[in-house]
């Protein structure tokens, strides 16, 4: 079974990468972009029966830094 973890910066945390991407999109002529936030996605191939709590534990202990990041888990 697979799970997909999406990691995003918390609201209010400055995202210089997102800002640079936003700037580059504007440079390409895309004028309708209000904001850009960059994050990352991690795909986990897990043993059957891995619990939500276990995946959350993985996120808290390693995959996300909860000082600055939020995470969202989707089972595929």
């Amino acid at each position: 079974m697979k799970a997909r973890v999406t990691i995003t910066l918390k609201n209010g945390v400055l995202d210089p990468q997102g800002k640079a991407i936003h700037h580059a999109l504007e440079g390409l002529g895309f004028s309708g972009v209000n904001d850009v936030r960059a994050g990352k996605m991690i795909e986990l191939d897990l043993a059957d029966g891995t619990s939500d709590a276990e995946i959350e534990d993985m996120c808290r202990k390693l995959l996300a830094n909860t000082v600055i990041e939020n995470f969202r888990i989707e089972r595929a």
Binding site: P16, V67, I68
Partner: peptide
């Protein structure tokens, strides 16, 4: 040290990239 929790906070990408 911040990632281990021995110090508070986090070090992010420089504001100027």
């Amino acid at each position: 040290l911040t990632e281990t929790g021995l110090l508070p906070g986090a070090l992010m990408r420089n504001a100027g990239i």
